[in-house]
Structures are given as structure tokens and as C-alpha cells.
């Protein structure tokens, strides 16, 4: 078992979980899916600097070997932006719940079906 395998497989598992949850019908689950997905994306970005153990990105006169600081800087802002995005998604889903009384991502399923049917019939009548 190498660390590379652990990280790669963890990214894969998080992505799979994120996709599955993002495809669910309730807003809260979609938010959780986003969270898992973001973990995976941040890890992946970080891993693009390759994995190193026991080296720091702090410059010093007598150190020759460093870890790659650039992916770290990118991921640092990504983590904070992830929070912004998650917060926005959460608040959006909360607001939509307060407005509609349903936490379904596509609105109330019955209502939705009716609306779709409306669209079909109005299509047929359109040429007037």
C-alpha cells in the first residue's frame, strides 16, 4: 500500500459519493454531495503537486528540498471559496424551502408533473 494509492482511492470514493448525493432529489443531500465533491476536488488539486512527507513550504537558508507551494496556495483559496459556495447553496435551498414548503430540488413532484403537462398542451395550441 502506498500513500499515492490511499489518496487516489480516497478521491475516487469521495467523487462517487458526491455524484450519488448530488443526483438525489432533496436539496440538503445535494449540498452534502457538493461538500464531498469539493473535498475530492481540493485533494486532487493538492495532489497535483505530488505527495511529499516531512517537508515544509517555508523558505530557509539551509533547506534544499521543498514541497510544491503552488498547488497549496491554490487549494487554500479553493477551500475558502468552497465554503462560500456551500454556504450559498445551503442558503438557497433554505430559501427555496421557505418559499415553496418543499425541499425537493425540482419543486413539488406532483406540481411539477402538472406543469410539464401544461407545457405540452400549450405547445400544441401555440400557433394561434
Amino acid at each position: 500500500m502506498t500513500l499515492e494509492f490511499l489518496v487516489a482511492s480516497a478521491i475516487g470514493v469521495l467523487v462517487a459519493g458526491g455524484i450519488y448525493l448530488a443526483l438525489r432529489a432533496r436539496t440538503f443531500q445535494v449540498v452534502l454531495g457538493l461538500t464531498l465533491f469539493s473535498y475530492a476536488v481540493n485533494l486532487f488539486l493538492f495532489a497535483s503537486g505530488r505527495l511529499v512527507v516531512d517537508r515544509a513550504p517555508i523558505w530557509s537558508k539551509d533547506v534544499a528540498e521543498y514541497t510544491d507551494p503552488l498547488p497549496q496556495a491554490l487549494v487554500l483559496t479553493a477551500i475558502v471559496i468552497t465554503f462560500g459556495m456551500t454556504a450559498f447553496a445551503v442558503i438557497l435551498s433554505l430559501r427555496s424551502f421557505l418559499e415553496s414548503g418543499s425541499d425537493q430540488v425540482d419543486g413539488d413532484p406532483c406540481e411539477n408533473a402538472v406543469r410539464n403537462a401544461d407545457v405540452e398542451t400549450s405547445d400544441a395550441d401555440e400557433p394561434r
Binding site: 499515492e4 478521491i11 467523487v15 503537486g49 503552488l70
Partner: peptide
Amino acid sequence: RDGMLAILGGLGIGGASWAMLTRDPGQTIS
């Protein structure tokens, strides 16, 4: 159906990570 897609996606991204991590990086600006 969603589960199948999720597993495919996980395998794909995980595989890509694995392929990346087992190769040396090219010249970077770091």
C-alpha cells in the same frame, strides 16, 4: 442508475489521480 454512474465517475477520477500521482510532474513554475 445513479449508483452506477457514481461508481463509474469515482473510478474515472480515482484512476486519473492514480495515473497522475504515479508519474513525475513536468517542469513547473514552483
